[in-house]
Design a protein around this nucleic acid. Sequence first.
RNA 1: GCGCCCGUAGCUCAGCCGGAUAGAGCGAUUGACUUCGAAUCAAUAGGCCGGGGGUUCGAGUCCCUCCGGGCGCGCCA
Length: 649
Amino acid sequence: MFHIVERTIAGRVAAFIRERFGADAPVSLEQPKQASFGELAIPAAFALARQLRQNPRKIAADFVAAIGPIPGVASLEVAGNGFINVRLDRAALAALMVAGEAPAPPASGGKIIVEHTNINPNKAAHIGHLRNAILGDTFVRMLRASGRRVEVQNYIDNTGVQVADVVAGFVHLENKSAADVAALIASPAVRFDYYCWDLYARVSSYYHDHPEALEWRPQALHAIEHREGEAAAIAALVSDAIVDCHLKTMLRLGVYYDVLPRESEILHLDFWATAFEQLKARQAIYFETEGKNKGCWVMPASAFKDSDDASGDSKVIVRSNHTVTYVGKDIAYQLWKFGLLGKDFHYRPWREYDHHTVYVTTDQPQQTSVSFGAGYQVYNVIDSRQSYLQDVVVAGLRALGYHDQAERSIHFSYEMVALSPRTCVELGIELSEEDRQRPYVEVSGRKGLGVKADDLIDKLIDKALEEVVSRHPEAPPEECRRVAGQIAVGALRYFMLKYTRNSIIAFDLQEALSFEGETGPYVQYAAVRARNIFRKLEERGGTLPDFAALLDKAALERQLADEDLWQFLLAASKSGSAVERALASGEPAHAARYAFQLAQAFSNFYHGYPVLAEENPERRAFLLWLTACFRSQLERTLDVLGIAAPEYM
RNA sequence: GCGCCCGUAGCUCAGCCGGAUAGAGCGAUUGACUUCGAAUCAAUAGGCCGGGGGUUCGAGUCCCUCCGGGCGCGCCA
């Protein structure tokens, strides 16, 4: 509700600046440092001062004198050396809220594609993947909450080196046939993704000890690419089974996808050939005739680097053996995402969730009429280590003349998840003396180490279950387990979200398992307590008062004269504003922080104002109504973060 | 060597386009359960915002430089 008022004020101020000063300054509203300064501050006078070469304080004074009344605003005051502080009409804002939140507008605007997760389908997911998926999924939820149309893609590299290595392991180290692997997948006694996790580690160390074995890799890759023989059959079995494992893991966290575009279809539908023709025709790449890249098609360094010196290394797109690099395929894929390739996949349903179907690409024409891609804007959630390659992809678009699309290709980058030294020790990872001194240890490069996503979730659930059972010994076990699951997911999602994207997370088991302080469970607990007040009311045979009848403008005016109550209401009105801010800054962490602040405000309110014990009827109605506001905003914000509000805790 | 990121309280981090007295959580110390459940709340201590220069009415935020740390820079993906 608050952001609607915010928007009204910003619009009115911008219009006023236009007509009076003839300037088109963008109007931003800030939150004043202190609550006593009012609810909003307009710093516009500073920008105008520079333009008009006048004292900002004087401009602010003129401004306040001339602007006239603004709906929802009680007063404007000049403060500091040129701030204009806004005091809202408390009862007016509250009356809007009593009348009810305006219905969410239908999804509008161009389709936004968010690609995330993108795990190699050759082994179980680990904590680094969790950060990717949680970040991507939360961003998707934020976009949808603000009325954007979104399509979620999870790219599957089912023909790459990592799959090939596991295939080589099955063939050469384990002498398994496709039928053996199929039996392994079907066996209830085997966790296939964990099995492959270990096998992949074994293959890697075997390569290390027997370098000659490395030739297995190109053999497997060739077989997979041409769909020949046992190796190709095993590769298909492995990647399909592992994709199912990944989707199941992500489902535990409430992460869903719309479509799984696969590398195999990019190959077999000749996406690259089409992109290659475009790149050659527009001279975005050229055939190198000399130097170390002789015989390759390359993109000049000047296309993707700022420096104008041509000395930088150009990027090979097509190798001298005529095969295309990863970046080349990625350019083709990015073109498809914008509907610029002039080609499309075919699609078939892959799996069915609650009431949601995930589609997968196929090279065979289908009956279904679904379509994907052709987005207006594209977010690629990929860790920051790949920013160089992402730059090359965007440069490819630009070199083809697609400047707008290049602008709307956003590398939604984030830093890695490392482990804290003590967590390494706990997991039995040997550390050098140097590592022990570091704040964190990067571990994902060390094959077979690291923390599996499902293990972590299980550990969190066990811990939460202990706490739930100790508090509710009488509750049925399955119910406790469900609540524990919600708490575990809340803890994990919040932990991954509370850091801004380019902060390295030093993952610490103890810290992640802690349910106190700035955590998901803290926010969940606030939501539970808000709900409990209404449950208690019902248990005592009370009924919900008619808020609209009891809380007229005069009543709201009386109640909101209490500064603390006004601050509480204000906090509870800002969820829309917080999501918009998080979206604008591209930081889901900002939404997470708001959730925490809201929960803090409620806990504070909870202690200071016994709602049900209140005897004055108007006051009691108001406190109940405020509780309802807190409750709906807490639940709404948790939902945007992908965190459930449990029945009890 | 080149490019990108980071350096803020003992620890982990916020700090929105440059604005008012730099904020949280954890840890420490001290209080609050006969109350709508203490997974909570209140209070205290803790800061040369890595160093130095600049830009201006005004810098944690922008520019330069130095120091310290991380990550990239393949005809791997």
